[in-house]
Design a protein around this nucleic acid. Structure first.
Lengths: 348, 348
DNA sequence: AGCAATACAGCAAGCGCTTTCTATGTAGAG
DNA sequence: CTCTACATAGAAAGCGCTTGCTGTATTGCT
């Protein structure tokens, strides 16, 4: 039925061991023999049995990438960059690796389940992207899992996610706090004093850090931080739309809306516009991430650019052992404030 | 070192066979025994060895999803929907499956390589998304590969991709031609006669079908189809921007620009705006796909909505054998014309 | 009470590959 | 011309799990 190593060996008149060695190329095989084997492989259209070789060699060529939402370009861009570096087809030599992109949907349970699944597959490496959930028991469970993975020799890299101490995981964290602070400072610098803030889901690290940065900026400038000017929602457009309506209800005199990310900002723009407010003349809007579409918004969005592709690529290289991990296993990746058309001096 | 089935068996005072059966739950095991085994599994923190069980059972729980560009929401949305249906963590019962999202980057070679890798892993199913490349040798190679996969029992589903005859693959094709025709008919109906068309890369089926639909509409309405009004590019924003500038150079009196997809349309809008043209008063713009951001464009984009999530979910169910394949193994999924603010009656 | 049927559990044979160790042939050294 | 060294190739022992087949109690019938 299916052709095996032994079939190839028989056809090439060599032992299975030799065929294996030709295929793995890590043992001297005479040129003539190699050629004969390769010919047989070709003629028989032989395809190695992955599970069997993974079992025998106790290693696999799977690399796991965990994302919160694969339909969101934020994660798509990182996943794409990571994948381009793990040496999949088209990558440099060194064996082809299969990227396993796992969509957790932001659910802690699924995150854990996927990690187990990856552990079960004896993945060569795992990259976790995006913010973590701040639930103590869950965080502990994830840490324990990561520890086990690293102990088993799986390289674990966190990309755009806070460090996980004592797990052996390398962390490339985004400076969400600093970026958010810069952004709000920019707005305050323009003269804004009544800023609405649309935060992400309560329990995520990303949400908390961005919110903290925002508050730091307010505090530093001595601007009152009215809790009624902060609303929590999801990281999507709809949430931004609804939250903005709510903010406007609470304070119709807002002069700026700072959103948790660009998608939320777009929703905010739609809500403002429908409320008859002009951007930025009446209300300034700011996002975060600088996803590709942000520059096409009208007016184009003031936001904080996160080097998603760069960080992903670096995470991928580290995961493959092709780049030195940062000292201490932790690096912070900064964002860059992008001032565009959606922010301006407030009306008097 | 790593704990195996045998360790669990020893601890639970049963044979390895029994442990295996408890774990797979497909063979009667007394409740008391099961409990004992489960307890041992828990205490030992045992994790099944995926490769080993895949080898022994001659099946794996990997499902491959091929996409052209994971950073593009078009594919992200489909991948997400497919994944939600393949019964991964959080899905219904029946064993957890790992989705392997493979980013081909639109390269035929990588597509082939990934298929081989998936075949090597003995994937349970494979879903190919997005248009195919129209290169005869490559198409034949892919067909041969698909044939081999289906012969080996892997279910193959094409999602948003034309049928591959005689491969045993199920196809859920998008009606790109019909959608494009409707869209252009709408524009012609508004009174447009000088329409620029920004097509995708030449060699892709999606590009050809959409272009054909556009031309059908022109022909049906007796509108001259000046080849100079068609420009080819990539499926991204930048390409739309550049192509629009080129179209404008060739014919400054265009009254409408039809783009290969929404991203391209956004680029077109930017180019028009920078050229001092208002949308839709001076020039109407239309996209394709109706990605989430399209409604947020200003003005919101007239486009053809493709049920990406729905088609992906269906493809996923079919791949898992949870839904009957369409009769003949082929189904056409229609798009829906979404008339929005970016299209209007041309200026006189 | 005696026999067939049923419900579990275990044995053991692989699944297809990798890899250590051993064997063989050839070449260079003394 | 014999001895050691090297380059290759093969034999065989698993890797950790699944599963067909074979027991052995236990249960249900008559």
């Amino acid at each position: 039925m299916t052709v095996t190593l032994a079939d190839v060996a028989a056809r090439a008149q060599v032992s299975p061991a030799t065929v294996s060695r030709v295929l793995n190329g890590n043992y001297p095989v005479a040129a003539s023999t190699r050629e004969r084997v390769l010919k047989a492989v070709d003629e028989l259209d032989y395809v190695l049995n992955g599970p069997a070789s993974a079992l025998a060699a106790a290693t696999s060529d799977l690399v796991g990438i965990l994302v919160n939402d694969i339909a969101d370009p934020f994660f798509g861009i990182m996943a794409s960059a990571i994948q381009s570096e793990i040496g999949g087809p088209g990558g440099r030599a060194g064996g082809e690796r299969l990227a396993v992109v796992c969509n957790t949907g932001g659910s802690p349970d699924r995150e854990l389940t996927y990690l187990t699944l990856l552990q079960r597959q004896r993945a060569a490496a795992v990259v976790l992207t995006g913010g973590a959930v701040e639930d103590a028991p869950h965080a502990a469970a994830v840490s324990a899992k990561l520890r086990k993975l690293t102990d088993a020799g799986t390289r674990v890299v966190l990309c755009g996610r806070p460090p996980a101490p004592d797990t052996g995981a390398i962390a490339l964290a985004f400076d969400n706090r600093g970026g958010a602070r810069q952004l709000t400072e920019h707005l305050i610098g323009l003269g804004h004093r009544r800023l609405g803030y649309i935060a992400g889901p309560e329990e995520r690290t990303t949400t908390r850090h961005r919110l903290e940065g925002h508050r730091e900026a307010l505090a530093a400038a001595g601007v009152e931080d009215d809790p009624r000017r902060t609303v929590h929602g999801r990281y999507d457009r709809r949430s931004g739309y609804e939250a903005t309506l709510e903010l406007l209800r609470r304070d119709p005199d807002l002069t700026a809306v700072v959103a948790a990310n660009d998608s939320v900002a777009l929703g905010a723009c739609a809500a403002l516009r429908e409320s008859g407010l002009r951007i930025p003349q009446d209300v300034s809007v700011a996002g975060f991430d600088d996803l590709p579409f942000s520059i096409d918004a009208v007016p184009s969005l003031t936001t904080v650019r996160l080097p998603l592709a760069g960080a992903g690529a670096r995470a991928g290289r580290i995961a493959m052992g092709r780049e030195e991990p940062p000292p201490g296993g932790i690096a912070t990746v900064r964002g860059e404030l992008m001032v565009r058309g959606s922010s301006a001096v407030p009306r008097v």
